[in-house]
Nucleic acid binder design. Structure first.
Lengths: 252, 252
DNA sequence: CGCGCCGTTGATATTATTCAAGACCAGTGG
DNA sequence: CCACTGGTCTTGAATAATATCAACGGCGCG
């Protein structure tokens, strides 16, 4: 499973690209505010950047890591988007996360030393590979980096908890409304339109993420459109009536 | 909301007890293998112990921290059990976690500086208060502690992901079976019986944790008993047919 | 062009919830 | 001691929500 010339886990088809591009540098990365560099001085960013040995490019559908793979690194998404999926023993899959640029992947592997989920690219995607042991070393020297790592980890836990609330206590239409609002907010924070965006997942994947079947998702999109909440054409979504959508999702 | 003489968040009725008991020491705590001290040498445990200024005792129903409270510390459960609950804006609550001795609570507050859930004692419970800033300081000096903290965090994320799988893709009977197996395993690791234990939650709380209504949980317990999988008397549970239970939960 | 994947929609089936009634149990005060 | 009370648990019947099954249209791509 290992890539020739690399001790880090990634799928065989992934291509590792050595750094030859200045835009790849943390200090000029447009995601630095959301990612590990947040709060670091320029010298400190330099130290962080020094351990990011490579970028990993994935084509749509390729895996960054697979279930059971040895854990040795975190990955920061630079460009594109990914899903993380949990697999039950009988083959069903549950999408546990939908990740965008600035998100950090792979935290699930820290405790057991093996990844307990899979990370699959939803489109052509580029990530930074961050060797975890070296990150720990540098974090011991740079309090701000240590804190930033903890902040990222806490963000992941918070997101998971909100998803638990969604799956455990919301009805189908509330789930979809909450999902759209969450996307809206996350695009906004990244400087994109918060009202018009393109979904990167199929209806089936959205259903898996929300604990629903694809037909239910499709029907809900149709109904939301009828009711004038959104305009949907395939994966292109335009949020029309934000207040009502918020009310639906239970946000007051 | 702050306790007189303490800068750390906890409910007003919680009593802080200064350390006057040798059994309170990390090195003699029966949970040290599951908790932060794991993997530390005795000198290092001493340094960790030095920052644990106090224990927090809670009576059944009392809160360790509430939603929105300022985050300043983690808490390690020494004795008893707790639930963490997420609150939706419209008042519904979702139990996100069921925690036992050795578990670390409060990680959800790291990223925003405020707790995003509530931690409530399910029975009389005792926890160690671990000031987070000081923990970060000491973790920078002791790689093993730093790693142990990361391991604990990763464990939490893994557990959340498994719960997402449960809520998103399992049917009611699978959820209850998986819940019982998870309890069984966690009691086993703590040196208790893995086949006979007492639930610390009401049917309603179990339902909330599993995304079900209390009546559904009650019916399932009755059915599992009829089918000879378990013996249930109120909250006392005895697992009778482990293999079938595992098959139900989708574990092969 | 034809194939495969994706999305929509309708009819039906299944699952879990809701509503309702009553049993049980521990604690409390007369 | 006993009746009373509030919380918990169980069970049944009716209902609502979502899944399943099935058919078909569209779109992109080789």
């Amino acid at each position: 499973m290992a890539i020739p010339g690399s001790s880090h886990a990634a799928s065989p088809s992934a291509r590792i690209v050595s750094i030859d591009d200045l835009r790849a540098h943390c200090s000029s990365c447009s995601m630095r505010e959301l990612c590990l560099p947040f709060g670091l001085g320029s010298g400190e960013i330099e130290q962080l950047f020094a351990i990011i040995g490579s970028r990993v490019k994935l084509r749509k559908g390729e895996a960054l890591f697979r279930n059971g793979a040895a854990f040795s690194a975190l990955f920061a998404i630079r460009l594109g988007s990914m899903k993380t999926t949990m697999l039950s023993d009988d083959g069903r899959e549950q999408i546990a996360g939908y990740h965008m640029p600035g998100d950090i992947l792979g935290l699930d592997g820290i405790s057991s030393g093996r990844h307990e989920c899979e990370a699959i690219a939803l489109e052509d995607t580029e990530t930074c590979l961050i060797p975890f042991e070296r990150l720990e070393e540098v974090a011991r020297e740079i309090p701000a980096l240590q804190h930033s790592l903890h902040r990222v980890v806490g963000r992941e836990i918070g997101q998971d908890h909100r998803q638990l609330l969604l799956l455990g206590s919301m009805r189908a239409e509330e789930r979809l409304a909450a999902f759209l609002l969450s996307l809206s907010e996350r695009y906004r924070r990244r400087g994109y339109s918060s009202t018009e965006f393109v979904l990167r997942m199929t209806r089936e994947e959205i259903g898996s993420f929300l604990g629903l079947k694809l037909e239910t998702v499709s029907r809900l999109f149709s109904r939301f459109q009828e009711e004038g909440l959104v305009q949907v054409q395939g994966r292109a979504v335009k949020i029309v009536d934000l207040p009502t959508l918020k009310k639906l999702a239970g946000v007051h």
